[in-house]
Protein backbone atom coordinates (compact mmCIF):
# COMPACT_ATOMS: atom_id res chain seq x y z
CA UNK A 1 0.00 0.00 0.00
CA UNK A 2 1.47 3.32 -1.06
CA UNK A 3 1.67 5.92 1.64
CA UNK A 4 1.44 9.60 0.86
CA UNK A 5 4.89 11.17 0.93
CA UNK A 6 4.31 13.31 4.00
CA UNK A 7 3.08 10.30 5.97
CA UNK A 8 6.14 8.29 4.94
CA UNK A 9 8.43 11.13 5.97
CA UNK A 10 6.67 11.37 9.30
CA UNK A 11 7.24 7.66 9.82
CA UNK A 12 10.93 8.01 8.94
CA UNK A 13 11.35 10.98 11.25
CA UNK A 14 9.98 9.01 14.18
CA UNK A 15 12.59 6.27 13.82
CA UNK A 16 15.04 7.76 16.37
CA UNK A 17 12.25 8.00 18.92
CA UNK A 18 11.14 4.44 18.18
CA UNK A 19 14.66 3.12 18.60
CA UNK A 20 15.00 5.00 21.87
CA UNK A 21 11.69 3.55 23.06
CA UNK A 22 12.66 0.02 22.08
CA UNK A 23 16.03 0.13 23.81
CA UNK A 24 15.26 2.54 26.61
CA UNK A 25 11.79 1.40 27.64
CA UNK A 26 10.65 -1.87 26.08
CA UNK A 27 13.97 -3.68 26.51
CA UNK A 28 14.47 -2.99 30.22
CA UNK A 29 10.78 -3.69 30.88
CA UNK A 30 11.13 -7.05 29.19
CA UNK A 31 14.10 -7.87 31.42
CA UNK A 32 12.12 -6.92 34.53
CA UNK A 33 9.22 -9.05 33.28
CA UNK A 34 11.46 -12.08 32.71
CA UNK A 35 13.27 -11.70 36.03
CA UNK A 36 9.93 -11.82 37.83
CA UNK A 37 9.62 -15.45 36.75
CA UNK A 38 13.07 -16.63 37.83
CA UNK A 39 14.64 -17.85 41.06
CA UNK A 40 16.74 -15.48 43.19
CA UNK A 41 20.51 -16.00 43.19
CA UNK A 42 22.33 -16.56 46.47
CA UNK A 43 23.61 -13.03 46.97
CA UNK A 44 22.23 -11.02 44.08
CA UNK A 45 21.03 -11.58 40.54
CA UNK A 46 18.87 -14.47 39.36
CA UNK A 47 19.13 -18.17 38.60
CA UNK A 48 17.65 -19.14 35.22
CA UNK A 49 14.95 -21.50 36.45
CA UNK A 50 11.32 -20.73 35.70
CA UNK A 51 9.12 -20.30 38.75
CA UNK A 52 6.08 -18.29 39.79
CA UNK A 53 7.27 -18.19 43.38
CA UNK A 54 7.96 -14.43 43.23
CA UNK A 55 4.37 -13.75 42.15
CA UNK A 56 3.06 -16.05 44.85
CA UNK A 57 5.06 -14.05 47.36
CA UNK A 58 3.72 -10.74 46.12
CA UNK A 59 0.20 -11.68 47.16
CA UNK A 60 0.60 -14.38 49.79
CA UNK A 61 2.97 -15.12 52.60
CA UNK A 62 3.90 -18.35 54.23
CA UNK A 63 4.04 -17.72 57.93
CA UNK A 64 7.72 -17.39 58.77
CA UNK A 65 7.37 -19.87 61.60
CA UNK A 66 4.63 -22.44 60.92
CA UNK A 67 4.42 -22.36 57.12
CA UNK A 68 0.69 -21.57 56.86
CA UNK A 69 -0.27 -19.49 53.83
CA UNK A 70 -2.17 -16.23 54.18
CA UNK A 71 -2.62 -12.94 52.34
CA UNK A 72 0.57 -10.88 52.28
CA UNK A 73 -0.57 -8.43 54.89
CA UNK A 74 2.76 -6.54 54.97
CA UNK A 75 2.72 -6.00 51.19
CA UNK A 76 -0.89 -4.80 51.22
CA UNK A 77 -0.10 -2.34 54.00
CA UNK A 78 2.86 -0.95 52.06
CA UNK A 79 0.92 -0.64 48.78
CA UNK A 80 -2.05 0.91 50.53
CA UNK A 81 0.19 3.47 52.28
CA UNK A 82 1.70 4.41 48.92
CA UNK A 83 -1.66 4.80 47.21
CA UNK A 84 -3.06 6.76 50.15
CA UNK A 85 -0.10 9.16 50.36
CA UNK A 86 -0.11 9.62 46.57
CA UNK A 87 -3.82 10.44 46.51
CA UNK A 88 -3.37 12.91 49.36
CA UNK A 89 -0.41 14.48 47.58
CA UNK A 90 -2.54 14.86 44.46
CA UNK A 91 -5.33 16.50 46.48
CA UNK A 92 -2.95 18.89 48.26
CA UNK A 93 -1.20 19.94 45.04
CA UNK A 94 -4.61 20.49 43.43
CA UNK A 95 -5.89 22.65 46.28
CA UNK A 96 -2.71 24.76 46.19
CA UNK A 97 -2.13 24.55 42.46
CA UNK A 98 -5.57 25.50 41.17
CA UNK A 99 -5.68 29.01 42.68
CA UNK A 100 -2.05 29.44 41.63
CA UNK A 101 -2.78 28.48 38.01
CA UNK A 102 -5.90 30.65 38.06
CA UNK A 103 -3.87 33.60 39.27
CA UNK A 104 -1.27 33.19 36.55
CA UNK A 105 -3.85 32.68 33.79
CA UNK A 106 -5.64 35.88 34.78
CA UNK A 107 -2.49 38.03 34.73
CA UNK A 108 -1.94 40.33 31.75
CA UNK A 109 -0.48 38.20 28.92
CA UNK A 110 2.90 39.93 29.00
CA UNK A 111 3.45 39.00 32.66
CA UNK A 112 2.44 35.33 32.42
CA UNK A 113 5.79 34.01 31.10
CA UNK A 114 7.53 35.51 34.14
CA UNK A 115 5.17 33.74 36.55
CA UNK A 116 5.48 30.44 34.69
CA UNK A 117 9.22 30.87 34.72
CA UNK A 118 9.12 31.17 38.54
CA UNK A 119 7.17 27.91 38.72
CA UNK A 120 9.89 26.07 36.80
CA UNK A 121 12.82 27.39 38.82
CA UNK A 122 12.80 24.50 41.35
CA UNK A 123 13.49 22.10 38.46
CA UNK A 124 16.92 23.64 38.12
CA UNK A 125 17.99 22.05 41.37
CA UNK A 126 18.52 18.36 41.93
CA UNK A 127 15.65 16.56 43.68
CA UNK A 128 17.97 15.27 46.38
CA UNK A 129 19.16 18.76 47.27
CA UNK A 130 15.60 20.11 47.37
CA UNK A 131 14.58 17.25 49.65
CA UNK A 132 17.46 17.96 52.01
CA UNK A 133 16.41 21.61 52.01
CA UNK A 134 12.94 20.55 53.17
CA UNK A 135 14.61 18.43 55.84
CA UNK A 136 16.37 21.56 57.10
CA UNK A 137 13.03 23.36 57.27
CA UNK A 138 11.20 20.59 59.14
CA UNK A 139 13.92 19.54 61.61
CA UNK A 140 13.34 19.98 65.34
CA UNK A 141 15.85 22.84 65.37
CA UNK A 142 14.93 23.77 61.80
CA UNK A 143 13.46 26.93 60.30
CA UNK A 144 9.78 26.10 60.84
CA UNK A 145 10.11 25.05 64.48
CA UNK A 146 12.44 27.95 65.32
CA UNK A 147 9.97 30.36 63.77
CA UNK A 148 6.96 28.90 65.59
CA UNK A 149 8.91 28.91 68.87
CA UNK A 150 9.88 32.52 68.29
CA UNK A 151 6.27 33.44 67.62
CA UNK A 152 5.33 31.67 70.83
CA UNK A 153 2.73 29.49 69.10
CA UNK A 154 4.37 26.36 70.52
CA UNK A 155 6.63 25.91 73.54
CA UNK A 156 8.54 22.87 72.32
CA UNK A 157 9.49 21.73 68.80
CA UNK A 158 6.88 19.79 66.84
CA UNK A 159 8.04 16.37 65.64
CA UNK A 160 7.19 16.75 61.97
CA UNK A 161 10.28 15.16 60.46
CA UNK A 162 10.12 11.36 60.12
CA UNK A 163 6.33 11.25 59.96
CA UNK A 164 3.91 10.68 57.09
CA UNK A 165 3.15 14.41 57.25
CA UNK A 166 6.77 15.19 56.41
CA UNK A 167 6.54 12.88 53.39
CA UNK A 168 3.32 14.61 52.30
CA UNK A 169 4.84 18.08 52.64
CA UNK A 170 7.92 16.97 50.71
CA UNK A 171 6.01 15.33 47.88
CA UNK A 172 3.52 18.19 47.58
CA UNK A 173 6.40 20.63 47.29
CA UNK A 174 8.29 18.53 44.76
CA UNK A 175 5.31 17.74 42.51
CA UNK A 176 3.41 21.04 42.70
CA UNK A 177 4.78 22.37 39.37
CA UNK A 178 3.55 19.22 37.63
CA UNK A 179 0.04 20.13 38.76
CA UNK A 180 0.22 23.86 38.07
CA UNK A 181 1.44 23.65 34.47
CA UNK A 182 -1.40 21.53 32.98
CA UNK A 183 -3.93 23.45 35.07
CA UNK A 184 -2.59 26.69 33.67
CA UNK A 185 -2.85 25.34 30.13
CA UNK A 186 -6.50 24.42 30.74
CA UNK A 187 -7.46 27.69 32.46
CA UNK A 188 -5.59 29.71 29.84
CA UNK A 189 -7.97 28.37 27.18
CA UNK A 190 -10.97 29.01 29.38
CA UNK A 191 -13.41 31.56 27.96
CA UNK A 192 -13.99 34.00 30.80
CA UNK A 193 -17.12 35.37 29.16
CA UNK A 194 -18.83 32.17 30.31
CA UNK A 195 -18.47 33.36 33.90
CA UNK A 196 -20.12 36.69 33.14
CA UNK A 197 -22.86 34.83 31.31
CA UNK A 198 -23.55 32.54 34.24
CA UNK A 199 -23.65 35.45 36.69
CA UNK A 200 -26.13 37.11 34.34
CA UNK A 201 -28.21 33.98 34.65
CA UNK A 202 -28.13 34.28 38.47
CA UNK A 203 -25.65 31.51 39.18
CA UNK A 204 -24.01 31.68 42.62
CA UNK A 205 -20.19 31.73 42.92
CA UNK A 206 -20.26 28.11 44.05
CA UNK A 207 -22.39 27.10 41.07
CA UNK A 208 -20.06 28.89 38.67
CA UNK A 209 -17.11 27.00 40.11
CA UNK A 210 -18.83 23.63 40.22
CA UNK A 211 -20.91 23.74 37.04
CA UNK A 212 -18.79 25.90 34.73
CA UNK A 213 -15.12 26.18 35.69
CA UNK A 214 -14.38 22.71 37.00
CA UNK A 215 -16.06 20.76 34.15
CA UNK A 216 -14.39 22.85 31.44
CA UNK A 217 -10.93 22.67 32.98
CA UNK A 218 -11.34 18.97 33.75
CA UNK A 219 -8.83 17.69 31.19
CA UNK A 220 -6.18 19.89 32.83
CA UNK A 221 -7.19 18.72 36.30
CA UNK A 222 -7.01 15.07 35.27
CA UNK A 223 -3.69 15.53 33.45
CA UNK A 224 -2.18 17.32 36.46
CA UNK A 225 -3.50 14.66 38.83
CA UNK A 226 -1.97 11.87 36.75
CA UNK A 227 1.34 13.72 36.49
CA UNK A 228 1.44 14.04 40.28
CA UNK A 229 -0.09 10.69 41.23
CA UNK A 230 2.14 8.49 39.08
CA UNK A 231 5.56 9.69 40.29
CA UNK A 232 4.26 9.96 43.89
CA UNK A 233 3.37 6.30 43.78
CA UNK A 234 6.92 5.34 42.90
CA UNK A 235 8.57 8.01 45.07
CA UNK A 236 11.79 6.82 46.63
CA UNK A 237 13.98 9.71 47.72
CA UNK A 238 11.33 11.75 49.56
CA UNK A 239 9.96 8.99 51.82
CA UNK A 240 13.49 7.74 52.36
CA UNK A 241 14.85 11.07 53.60
CA UNK A 242 11.81 12.75 55.16
CA UNK A 243 9.92 9.65 56.31
CA UNK A 244 12.79 8.39 58.42
CA UNK A 245 12.56 4.92 56.88
CA UNK A 246 10.36 3.49 59.65
CA UNK A 247 7.48 2.85 57.27
CA UNK A 248 8.23 1.96 53.67
CA UNK A 249 6.55 3.05 50.49
CA UNK A 250 6.52 0.81 47.42
CA UNK A 251 9.67 2.37 45.95
CA UNK A 252 11.66 1.70 49.10
CA UNK A 253 10.22 -1.79 49.37
CA UNK A 254 11.31 -2.64 45.83
CA UNK A 255 14.78 -1.25 46.55
CA UNK A 256 14.98 -3.47 49.64
CA UNK A 257 14.45 -6.57 47.48
CA UNK A 258 17.22 -5.59 45.06
CA UNK A 259 19.57 -4.57 47.89
CA UNK A 260 19.69 -6.01 51.36
CA UNK A 261 16.81 -8.41 50.75
CA UNK A 262 18.75 -10.13 47.95
CA UNK A 263 15.57 -11.21 46.15
CA UNK A 264 15.57 -9.72 42.66
CA UNK A 265 12.61 -11.76 41.28
CA UNK A 266 10.34 -10.50 44.06
CA UNK A 267 11.55 -6.96 43.41
CA UNK A 268 10.85 -7.43 39.70
CA UNK A 269 7.35 -8.80 40.37
CA UNK A 270 6.58 -5.88 42.69
CA UNK A 271 7.79 -3.46 40.00
CA UNK A 272 5.44 -5.07 37.47
CA UNK A 273 2.55 -4.75 39.93
CA UNK A 274 3.35 -1.06 40.40
CA UNK A 275 3.37 -0.69 36.63
CA UNK A 276 -0.06 -2.29 36.40
CA UNK A 277 -1.46 0.14 38.98
CA UNK A 278 -0.03 3.06 36.98
CA UNK A 279 -1.52 1.67 33.76
CA UNK A 280 -4.94 1.37 35.38
CA UNK A 281 -4.68 5.01 36.48
CA UNK A 282 -3.72 6.05 32.94
CA UNK A 283 -6.58 4.08 31.38
CA UNK A 284 -8.96 5.75 33.78
CA UNK A 285 -7.49 9.06 32.60
CA UNK A 286 -8.10 8.25 28.95
CA UNK A 287 -11.69 7.23 29.69
CA UNK A 288 -12.46 10.32 31.76
CA UNK A 289 -11.00 12.80 29.28
CA UNK A 290 -12.31 11.21 26.10
CA UNK A 291 -15.72 11.00 27.78
CA UNK A 292 -15.74 14.73 28.35
CA UNK A 293 -14.91 15.41 24.72
CA UNK A 294 -17.85 13.35 23.55
CA UNK A 295 -20.17 15.36 25.71
CA UNK A 296 -18.64 18.61 24.53
CA UNK A 297 -19.17 17.67 20.89
Amino acid sequence: MAMPKHARDGWLLSIPALILLAFGAAGPLLIVFIYAFLEPGDFSGVVWNFTTEAWFRVFFERDIFDGTVSMADAHLTIFWRSVKLSLLTTLITFLIGFPMAWFIATQPPNRRPAWLFLITIPFWTNLLIRTFAILEVLRNQGLLNSFLLWLGVIDQPLQILYTDNAVLIGMAYVYLPLMVLPLFAAIDRFDFRLIEASYDLYASRWQVLRRIILPITRPGIVAGSILVFVPSLGAYVTPRILGGGKNMMVGNFIELQFGQGRNWPLGAALSMLLLVIVLVALLAYVRVTSGSERRDA
Partner: peptide, 20 residues
Protein backbone atom coordinates in the same frame (compact mmCIF):
# COMPACT_ATOMS: atom_id res chain seq x y z
CA UNK B 1 29.65 -13.82 58.67
CA UNK B 2 27.16 -13.41 55.87
CA UNK B 3 24.16 -15.63 56.70
CA UNK B 4 23.10 -18.65 54.60
CA UNK B 5 20.23 -18.15 52.13
CA UNK B 6 17.53 -19.78 54.32
CA UNK B 7 18.42 -17.54 57.28
CA UNK B 8 18.61 -14.57 54.92
CA UNK B 9 15.02 -15.27 53.78
CA UNK B 10 13.83 -15.38 57.40
CA UNK B 11 15.69 -12.15 58.15
CA UNK B 12 14.15 -10.41 55.13
CA UNK B 13 10.65 -11.60 56.05
CA UNK B 14 11.04 -10.25 59.59
CA UNK B 15 12.55 -7.03 58.26
CA UNK B 16 9.59 -6.52 55.90
CA UNK B 17 7.18 -7.18 58.74
CA UNK B 18 9.06 -4.59 60.77
CA UNK B 19 8.97 -1.86 58.13
CA UNK B 20 5.49 -2.44 56.73
Amino acid sequence: SSCPKEVQDLYTAIWTDLQK
